[in-house]
Design a protein around this nucleic acid. Structure first.
Lengths: 212, 212
DNA sequence: ATTGACAATGAGCATATGCTCATTATATCG
DNA sequence: CGATATAATGAGCATATGCTCATTGTCAAT
């Protein structure tokens, strides 16, 4: 079942390429890594098995990622970026701090529901303590953007006066927990319940406006 | 540095024991496991290294735990129970739903601060999806007790009318995040900031009493 | 058709892994 | 002192692991 579609994102300015890459390797690698971890757990992942799952040779895998740690971290970053994109895309459609933050919140939760294994993988890896997993610019940027969105809420008097980091914890943590539940238990949660959680969380950090 | 203290919790009704256990093996195993995972990460733990770290032979380790998974899960349960005990002990000293829940909340956070590696280990393992890690009675009991405490808050009109599970998510998630931050970043957080987080979370789920 | 340049392979290496079990050490009891 | 029963050991087994690299496959330009 060797895929027949070709890579599309080649840089035009490259003088000339010899063999073009066949199939979307990175995508296959990502999928295989997440599936493998979901199946055997983080304490028993193996590169060989991931390669087998992705239907490519170990050598090829090591062409894309220098070490096992690199591979894991790369996938982790992919998922993190995906989640961030989903949140930011959702926010872009909305106006006002509450609408935007609410959209981001639900985007996060919905990611956990629609891509449980991906989400759980990211959760598992974010607990890893090795050097590889720290001080990455992309991840830092993600953190900054989310914080900025919350800061905007504070500045526009929609949220209470408190450190943005503090409010982020209160907002994001339950969303992550919900998404994690979805990915572990597999059980679906009703939209109404999610609304309830958000409303209560929001109740805590929102400024009380007399004209509501 | 072979320890000289002896095990104390032997059942008196055992006919007679031949060789008594020397040293507190379980304790050493637990400490070694957590340290090892904290150092190399969950994707690279090895039983042999844990045994070496605990200063006992692999054979002895396998005398206490049938498989690697059992070992990991056992330590996980130990830590979970510790955290639960800390929370319940803290609650016992207080009266009233708010005082009790607040005490439990801070006990959870403080556990993360005082035993970061233990806490992080539990967090890492709770994401594992294998069969070994599900359907345990002790863990279920822990969940029930915490929920009961929250339900008491609802019944006594201290908390808003909502499913206890929902309120648990809102209360517990930020505490876990804080504790996790403490264990990863190592950076200390001021008591004042913690108070702030709790107050805002509580603001969301507490009933508004006119006489306050 | 030939060449140059890169993509992909997978047998295989050195070592690490989870786990076993024959053996040894240490205790209690008659 | 044996006799007996359990605790502890650690060399070692079968296999799995992370990773390499000589080889082969496949394309574009000549």
């Amino acid at each position: 079942m060797k895929s027949a579609n070709f890579a599309t994102n080649q840089l035009a300015l490259e003088k000339f390429l010899a063999r073009t890459k066949s199939g979307d390797k990175p995508k296959a690698i990502r999928a295989a890594t997440i599936k493998e971890v979901a199946e055997v757990g983080s304490t028993a992942v193996s590169v060989n098995k991931i390669a087998k799952r992705a239907e490519l040779s170990v050598g090829t895998l090591y062409r894309y990622h220098e070490t096992k740690d690199d591979l894991l971290f790369w996938v982790f970053k992919q998922v993190k970026s995906d989640i961030h994109d989903a949140m930011m895309t959702a926010a872009r459609e909305k106006d006002g701090a509450k609408g935007r933050l609410r959209a981001m919140w639900f985007a996060l939760v919905e990611y956990g529901f629609s891509a449980p294994k991906d989400f759980l993988f990211a959760e598992m890896m974010s607990a890893e303590i090795r050097d590889t997993f720290h001080g990455d610019l992309v991840l830092e940027q993600i953190g900054i953007e989310v914080l900025a969105e919350i800061q905007a809420g504070i500045d526009s008097q929609v949220l209470v006066q408190a450190p943005a980091k503090t409010l982020e914890i209160i907002l994001a943590s339950p969303a992550i927990t919900l998404a994690r539940w979805a990915s572990i238990g597999g059980g679906q949660m009703e939209k109404r319940e999610l609304d309830c959680v958000f409303d209560l969380v929001w109740r805590g950090i929102a400024r009380v406006e007399p004209n509501e």
